[in-house]
Computed example of a mutant assay.
Amino acid sequence: MRKFKALFGPLCIAAASTFFASCDSSMNPVEYNNKLMSVMNEQEKHMNEMNTAMVSQDFAKAESVRKTWVEQLDKSIGEVNKIAAAKDDGGLKPAVEQGLKEYKKIAGESYKELIGLRTKEKNGDTSVLPQIQVTLNRINQSFEAIGANINKASYQFEKNHSKP
Protein backbone atom coordinates (compact mmCIF):
# COMPACT_ATOMS: atom_id res chain seq x y z
CA MET A 1 0.00 0.00 0.00
CA ARG A 2 2.91 2.30 0.61
CA LYS A 3 3.96 2.36 -3.11
CA PHE A 4 0.44 3.37 -4.09
CA LYS A 5 0.45 6.33 -1.70
CA ALA A 6 3.89 7.37 -2.93
CA LEU A 7 2.64 7.42 -6.53
CA PHE A 8 -0.80 8.81 -5.78
CA GLY A 9 0.42 12.29 -4.76
CA PRO A 10 2.53 12.96 -7.85
CA LEU A 11 -0.24 11.55 -10.08
CA CYS A 12 -2.78 13.95 -8.55
CA ILE A 13 -0.42 16.87 -9.09
CA ALA A 14 0.18 15.83 -12.69
CA ALA A 15 -3.55 15.40 -13.33
CA ALA A 16 -4.34 18.79 -11.78
CA SER A 17 -1.60 20.46 -13.84
CA THR A 18 -2.94 18.88 -17.02
CA PHE A 19 -6.49 19.95 -16.14
CA PHE A 20 -5.57 23.55 -15.45
CA ALA A 21 -3.36 23.75 -18.53
CA SER A 22 -6.27 22.50 -20.64
CA CYS A 23 -8.53 25.24 -19.24
CA ASP A 24 -6.75 27.80 -21.40
CA SER A 25 -9.21 29.67 -23.62
CA SER A 26 -7.47 28.50 -26.77
CA MET A 27 -7.77 24.97 -28.13
CA ASN A 28 -4.80 22.67 -28.22
CA PRO A 29 -3.67 21.57 -31.70
CA VAL A 30 -5.54 18.25 -31.53
CA GLU A 31 -8.82 19.91 -30.50
CA TYR A 32 -8.35 22.58 -33.16
CA ASN A 33 -7.73 20.03 -35.91
CA ASN A 34 -10.62 17.85 -34.73
CA LYS A 35 -13.03 20.78 -34.65
CA LEU A 36 -12.17 21.83 -38.19
CA MET A 37 -12.29 18.27 -39.51
CA SER A 38 -15.60 17.68 -37.74
CA VAL A 39 -17.15 20.61 -39.61
CA MET A 40 -15.86 19.20 -42.90
CA ASN A 41 -17.03 15.68 -42.08
CA GLU A 42 -20.56 16.93 -41.38
CA GLN A 43 -20.86 17.49 -45.12
CA GLU A 44 -20.68 13.76 -45.79
CA LYS A 45 -24.27 13.34 -44.58
CA HIS A 46 -25.50 15.75 -47.24
CA MET A 47 -23.35 14.12 -49.93
CA ASN A 48 -24.79 10.71 -49.09
CA GLU A 49 -28.35 12.06 -49.14
CA MET A 50 -27.68 13.70 -52.50
CA ASN A 51 -26.20 10.52 -53.97
CA THR A 52 -29.15 8.46 -52.72
CA ALA A 53 -31.67 10.88 -54.23
CA MET A 54 -29.81 11.09 -57.54
CA VAL A 55 -29.36 7.32 -57.89
CA SER A 56 -33.04 6.74 -57.16
CA GLN A 57 -33.90 9.51 -59.67
CA ASP A 58 -35.91 11.34 -57.02
CA PHE A 59 -35.00 14.78 -58.29
CA ALA A 60 -37.51 16.59 -56.08
CA LYS A 61 -35.75 15.02 -53.09
CA ALA A 62 -32.36 15.89 -54.59
CA GLU A 63 -33.43 19.52 -54.92
CA SER A 64 -34.62 19.55 -51.29
CA VAL A 65 -31.31 18.04 -50.13
CA ARG A 66 -29.42 20.58 -52.22
CA LYS A 67 -31.23 23.55 -50.67
CA THR A 68 -30.78 22.19 -47.14
CA TRP A 69 -27.10 21.54 -47.82
CA VAL A 70 -26.52 25.11 -49.04
CA GLU A 71 -28.17 26.46 -45.88
CA GLN A 72 -26.06 24.16 -43.71
CA LEU A 73 -22.92 25.24 -45.53
CA ASP A 74 -23.63 28.86 -44.62
CA LYS A 75 -23.82 27.78 -40.96
CA SER A 76 -20.67 25.67 -41.26
CA ILE A 77 -18.72 28.52 -42.84
CA GLY A 78 -19.84 30.78 -40.00
CA GLU A 79 -18.82 28.16 -37.46
CA VAL A 80 -15.32 27.93 -38.96
CA ASN A 81 -15.04 31.72 -39.03
CA LYS A 82 -15.67 31.81 -35.27
CA ILE A 83 -12.77 29.45 -34.52
CA ALA A 84 -9.64 31.38 -33.62
CA ALA A 85 -6.75 30.37 -35.86
CA ALA A 86 -4.15 28.27 -34.10
CA LYS A 87 -0.52 29.27 -33.94
CA ASP A 88 1.38 27.68 -36.82
CA ASP A 89 -1.92 26.81 -38.52
CA GLY A 90 -0.13 25.94 -41.75
CA GLY A 91 -3.15 27.09 -43.74
CA LEU A 92 -5.56 24.52 -42.28
CA LYS A 93 -8.35 26.88 -41.27
CA PRO A 94 -8.24 28.81 -44.57
CA ALA A 95 -8.23 25.51 -46.49
CA VAL A 96 -11.27 24.26 -44.58
CA GLU A 97 -13.05 27.57 -45.04
CA GLN A 98 -12.26 27.58 -48.77
CA GLY A 99 -13.32 23.93 -49.03
CA LEU A 100 -16.69 24.75 -47.50
CA LYS A 101 -17.11 27.67 -49.89
CA GLU A 102 -16.31 25.36 -52.80
CA TYR A 103 -18.83 22.81 -51.47
CA LYS A 104 -21.38 25.63 -51.41
CA LYS A 105 -20.60 26.40 -55.04
CA ILE A 106 -20.97 22.72 -55.93
CA ALA A 107 -24.26 22.38 -54.05
CA GLY A 108 -25.58 25.78 -55.12
CA GLU A 109 -24.63 25.70 -58.78
CA SER A 110 -23.28 22.40 -60.08
CA TYR A 111 -25.82 20.13 -58.42
CA LYS A 112 -28.62 22.50 -59.39
CA GLU A 113 -27.50 22.20 -62.99
CA LEU A 114 -27.11 18.42 -62.72
CA ILE A 115 -30.57 17.98 -61.22
CA GLY A 116 -32.07 19.98 -64.09
CA LEU A 117 -30.17 17.95 -66.67
CA ARG A 118 -31.08 14.63 -65.07
CA THR A 119 -34.73 15.68 -64.95
CA LYS A 120 -34.61 16.40 -68.70
CA GLU A 121 -32.93 13.04 -69.30
CA LYS A 122 -35.59 11.26 -67.22
CA ASN A 123 -38.25 12.94 -69.37
CA GLY A 124 -36.66 11.52 -72.52
CA ASP A 125 -34.20 14.22 -73.63
CA THR A 126 -31.02 12.27 -74.43
CA SER A 127 -29.33 15.33 -75.94
CA VAL A 128 -28.30 16.37 -72.40
CA LEU A 129 -26.05 13.32 -71.87
CA PRO A 130 -22.81 15.13 -72.83
CA GLN A 131 -23.70 18.03 -70.52
CA ILE A 132 -24.41 15.58 -67.70
CA GLN A 133 -20.97 14.04 -68.12
CA VAL A 134 -19.25 17.44 -68.18
CA THR A 135 -21.11 18.48 -65.01
CA LEU A 136 -20.30 15.21 -63.23
CA ASN A 137 -16.64 15.58 -64.16
CA ARG A 138 -16.61 19.16 -62.87
CA ILE A 139 -18.20 18.07 -59.57
CA ASN A 140 -15.76 15.19 -59.10
CA GLN A 141 -12.73 17.32 -59.97
CA SER A 142 -13.88 19.95 -57.50
CA PHE A 143 -14.25 17.39 -54.73
CA GLU A 144 -10.77 16.02 -55.49
CA ALA A 145 -9.24 19.51 -55.46
CA ILE A 146 -10.90 20.34 -52.14
CA GLY A 147 -9.64 17.13 -50.60
CA ALA A 148 -6.11 17.65 -51.92
CA ASN A 149 -5.98 21.21 -50.61
CA ILE A 150 -7.21 20.24 -47.15
CA ASN A 151 -4.90 17.22 -47.00
CA LYS A 152 -1.92 19.42 -47.89
CA ALA A 153 -2.83 21.96 -45.19
CA SER A 154 -3.52 19.19 -42.68
CA TYR A 155 -0.10 17.67 -43.35
CA GLN A 156 1.55 21.05 -42.81
CA PHE A 157 -0.43 21.59 -39.60
CA GLU A 158 0.61 18.16 -38.34
CA LYS A 159 4.23 18.86 -39.27
CA ASN A 160 4.12 22.19 -37.41
CA HIS A 161 2.69 20.60 -34.26
CA SER A 162 4.38 17.22 -34.06
CA LYS A 163 7.06 16.89 -31.47
CA PRO A 164 10.55 16.02 -32.74
Score class of each variant (00 low, 15 high):
residue 49 E to S: 13
residue 62 A to C: 09
residue 79 E to H: 07
residue 75 K to C: 07
residue 118 R to C: 03
residue 76 S to Y: 09
residue 26 S to F: 09
residue 92 L to E: 03
residue 133 Q to D: 08
residue 107 A to N: 02
residue 37 M to Y: 08
residue 66 R to V: 00
residue 135 T to H: 04
residue 37 M to L: 05
residue 129 L to H: 02
residue 116 G to I: 03
residue 78 G to V: 14
residue 80 V to L: 10
residue 35 K to H: 14
residue 73 L to T: 08
residue 91 G to K: 07
residue 69 W to L: 08
residue 83 I to T: 11
residue 80 V to S: 10
residue 66 R to Q: 13
residue 134 V to H: 01
residue 80 V to R: 02
residue 78 G to Q: 10
residue 24 D to E: 10
residue 118 R to F: 08
residue 26 S to T: 07
residue 118 R to K: 04
residue 39 V to W: 08
residue 72 Q to V: 06
residue 21 A to S: 13
residue 10 P to A: 01
residue 76 S to H: 15
residue 43 Q to M: 12
residue 127 S to E: 12
residue 129 L to F: 06
residue 65 V to R: 02
residue 78 G to H: 11
residue 29 P to N: 06
residue 135 T to K: 05
residue 84 A to Y: 00
residue 60 A to M: 03
residue 101 K to Y: 07
residue 88 D to N: 09
residue 124 G to P: 01
residue 67 K to Y: 06
residue 30 V to N: 05
residue 17 S to R: 05
residue 98 Q to W: 05
residue 109 E to L: 02
residue 36 L to H: 06
residue 112 K to E: 08
residue 69 W to Q: 04
residue 55 V to F: 09
residue 13 I to P: 08
residue 108 G to T: 02
residue 50 M to P: 05
residue 63 E to T: 12
residue 68 T to R: 12
residue 11 L to G: 00
residue 120 K to E: 08
residue 39 V to P: 04
residue 59 F to L: 02
residue 77 I to E: 06
residue 95 A to S: 15
residue 132 I to F: 03
residue 36 L to K: 06
residue 131 Q to G: 07
residue 88 D to K: 11
residue 97 E to I: 04
residue 15 A to C: 05
residue 64 S to H: 12
residue 48 N to A: 12
residue 32 Y to I: 09
residue 114 L to M: 12
residue 84 A to L: 13
residue 13 I to M: 05
residue 85 A to N: 10
residue 32 Y to E: 08
residue 51 N to F: 04
residue 129 L to T: 15
residue 23 C to E: 11
residue 82 K to A: 14
residue 49 E to L: 00
residue 16 A to E: 01
residue 48 N to W: 00
residue 86 A to V: 00
residue 102 E to L: 12
residue 133 Q to R: 10
residue 46 H to A: 07
residue 67 K to C: 02
residue 27 M to S: 13
residue 100 L to H: 01
residue 21 A to Q: 08
residue 128 V to F: 14
residue 111 Y to V: 15
residue 94 P to L: 12
residue 23 C to Y: 03
residue 131 Q to C: 03
residue 83 I to C: 09
residue 111 Y to P: 07
residue 95 A to Y: 06
residue 76 S to C: 12
